[in-house]
Structure formats: C-alpha cells, structure tokens
Design a binder for these strands. Structure first.
Lengths: 230, 230
DNA sequence: CTATGAAGTAAACATCGTCCACATAATCTA
DNA sequence: TAGATTATGTGGACGATGTTTACTTCATAG
C-alpha cells in the first residue's frame, strides 16, 4: 500500500527548508529514532554560534527534519530545551577544566601541586570561555542551582566545574597553603574572579579585548586569588 | 472642525491596551511631546523587572500610548532602544558607587582613605546589583566599549563605573599601597571579581544565595583584592 | 490481530520586530 | 498670513517565534 510509504496527511517536512541547510537527511521512517538528542545537538550548535538567545526551538526541529511541534514530545517548551543545551555546555566547561588539571600530576611538593591545580581550574575555565564564547555564555545564562548533582553536567571525572574548584581548594588546604577559616566558601571568591573576567570579556565592556590579553590578565588574576585568599 | 480633534485616520491608540496597564494618559495632541524619553522610561521599567530580554519595543510604545512604529522616529530599532536603556542603567550603577564613596572623606591617613575608596567602589557595585538585579544585568549585557566617554553613562561626578574604579586605584597607588607595576591594568582584575560575584548571584548558579550572604562574600572579596593586588 | 499509546503532523493563534505608504500638525518661509 | 516643508504618528502588512488543539501514523504488548 502506498499509504505506508507516503502518508496521507504527513508530508514529512521535506522541501520547505531547502535553502542551504545542511544535514537534513530525508528521513524515510515516520519515527525519527533519536529526536531528543538531535534537538539538543542542533541547539548546542546554535548556542555555540550565538549564545543562549540564539537557541531557537523551531530552528532545531527544522535541522532535525521534523515539524515544530514534534519538539513538544520531548520538551515542555523552549525553556526546557535550553536547559538541556545548557547542561551540555556545562559539561564541556568541566571537560576543559579537567584537561587543564590533567597536565600536572601530584609530585613531591604538595604545595606546588595545589597551586598548579588552582591555576588549572581558573585557566581551564577562562580558556573555554575564550575558545567557546557562545557555549560558555549559555552554560551560565540562567539559574540551575549549584548543588544539583546532575550527572549530565559532569565530564569524565564526574565533577562539575564547581566541584573541580573545590577539589583544587582542598589541595590548598591540605598542603597548608590555606587556613581552615580562609578555606570556608573560598569557592565563591575564586569563582567570582574568573567568571567576572570571562563575562566582561565576552559580553561586557571588555568585548574587544584580544584573547591573549584576556588570558594574560587571567594569569595575573589567578595569582591575585592565590595571594589574596590566604 | 472635528477632524482637528478626532483624526480621520488615526485612532490615537486607545482601547486596545485597556487590560490593566497603568499610566496611559489618553493623549489628546497628535504629537506626544516627549516620546523618546517616555520610551526609554518604559524600557527602563521593563529592564528593572526582567532584565535586557524583557525590554520590548512594542510594549514601550503601548505604555507611551503610541503606535508601535512611532518608536522608529526616535530609534533605528529595538537594539537602539535597548542601548539607550542600557545607558540609563549604567548611570544608575555609577550613582550607586558614588553614593558609597561619598560616605568617606579624605582624612589624615591616605592609605586608610584609599582602602575605603576601593571598598566603596566594590560594595557600591555589588549593592546595586543586589538591589536592582534587572537594571544591573541590563547595564552589562551587550558590549558598549569601555572607553566611551558617553556623558549619558555618567552620574553626578561625571565618571562611569570604570573611571570611578580607576580613581580608587589611583588613590592606592598614590598612598603607596600599590606599586606602579601592580597598578597597571588593575582595574580589570578588581572589576572582574565583583562583576563575577554579581553575575553568579544574579543569573548564575548562586541564584538562590540570600542577598546578605552575597554582600558578606563581597566584603571578603574586596579584602582579597586588596591583599592580592599588592 | 487488534488496541493502545508514543511520536509526528497540520493548522491556527498571539506576540514580536520591522518595512511601506500615508496622515497630521508644527514650523519655516515668502 | 498663506503655503510648503518636515518631523512625528498611524495603519496595515510580512515573516519569525513559541505554543495549543486536534488529528495521524505506527510499533508493540497482550
């Protein structure tokens, strides 16, 4: 029967987006198979290119080769899609920090290791911000409470950026670089500095500052934190 | 003639927004008289309530009792309106900093004065962020380059937030608290810290942190900057 | 084999920003 | 003072977005 191949009602969303959109495989099955993922992936690409405001629900469905409303089978609305995209962005941030941390192994000098760890967190964070501005801005755009152990936010080590920072600060404490009192809530102090620089440079008044200078400032910033915390 | 009171074509935009919108004076004159200002004011109120994304051009015209397109006689588009609103927000920030700075007069101890100035800048900044989250987020949402001596951005002293910070840092330098080398670009370092805390607390993962704690962290942060810069 | 429910589709609505053509009135000039 | 000019608003339209409601398709469980 023809109706099994060419549906009576559904036109399977072909022609209308034949401008120059890539990657629209004319799906032949009625079911997409992996739509939720496809939407998040599309959204992630939009976030990469234009930040949180650029993740458009309809556009995501378009890229997935699906009707706009199909999205509503997987997300309650645009906000929820954005949430999923944000989670994806967050784990990229975590991955970047991990990469930076892995560059230094624990040696004989625990204090040196602790310092390197803290720097790695800061620079991994800033590095990602500079490398992937859109994703970074998306990751921290709208409030997902910090104490959510959402596994989607974590990279290979299973820690989110905040937890990675805590780890580095604990090393400072353990190696005697930080007093117990100063360790208290130090996450927020350290985090604020790099986050602030990142946003000032990405979507703030320092917008036109060249990346190298941002990173150079970042180095000074981390040193400042190191000295200032103690 | 009636046509001078009741225009042939124009209905003067009455009834359609009779939901519960306040402050729509049924203007009787064809000219509004001060539309540009009215639009900015309306936009500012929206920014206050919902941040940059909430400043809607059409809504502004509605509140001004005017047709949507009337806005285009004063702004090239929504972006330009937002720009004007942002400028207004920026000068509020500056005003808040000034208020904080004025609390301390220069006394016999220049170093103490310098410290107090730096703290005042930081806490004035953070205080405004906590008090007026929407305006704060709007002020620093999209990139107006930092070195714009736009008089609209300045408060009574004629300095924008960045310049006020520079002033405080100069006092640190002059009083010997800061070396010439460390003074270099210290604005960016100090700014990053408070800006970061503000954004983490407003639209970031620290969203639910109570305001008092944010300000308490702010105090520690400023101390950290003071120690870390030197 | 069928019925049930998950996944997609279609068509519509409201809202937004923006463009075009036109109307109105304040002001400038003759 | 009359007439032309020009700044300021209006109306209507277009395309895009998010979202709702009712319908269709089809995989699979019993």
């Amino acid at each position: 029967m023809l109706s099994t191949i060419i549906p009576l009602h559904g036109t399977l969303y072909f022609e209308q987006t034949m401008k120059k959109n890539v990657s629209i495989e004319k799906r032949k099955t009625f079911r997409h198979g992996d739509l939720r993922n496809a939407l998040v992936t599309a959204g992630l690409e939009m976030a990469r290119a234009g930040g949180p405001n650029a993740v458009i629900l309809r556009e995501a469905t378009r890229q997935a080769g699906v009707s706009p409303n199909a999205a509503y089978r997987h997300f309650a609305g645009q906000a929820e899609l954005l949430d999923a995209v944000r989670s994806a962005c967050l784990s990229r941030v975590a991955a970047s920090i991990e990469d930076e941390m892995k560059k230094h192994k624990a040696g004989r000098d625990p204090q040196a290791f602790a310092r390197k760890s803290l720097r790695a967190v800061g620079m991994g964070y800033l590095g990602f911000a500079v490398r992937e501005p859109g994703m970074f801005r998306t990751a921290f755009s709208v409030p997902p409470p910090v104490h959510s152990p959402d596994p989607a936010n974590t990279a290979s080590m299973g820690l989110n950026p905040f937890q990675l920072l805590s780890l580095a600060l604990d090393r400072m404490l353990d190696s005697g670089l930080l007093g117990k009192k100063d360790r208290q809530d130090a996450e927020y102090l350290a985090w604020s500095t790099v986050h602030g620089l990142a946003l000032l440079a990405l979507e703030g008044p320092l917008h036109k500052m060249p990346r190298e200078m941002v990173l150079a400032l970042g180095e000074r910033l981390v040193v400042m934190v190191e000295r200032g915390l103690g």
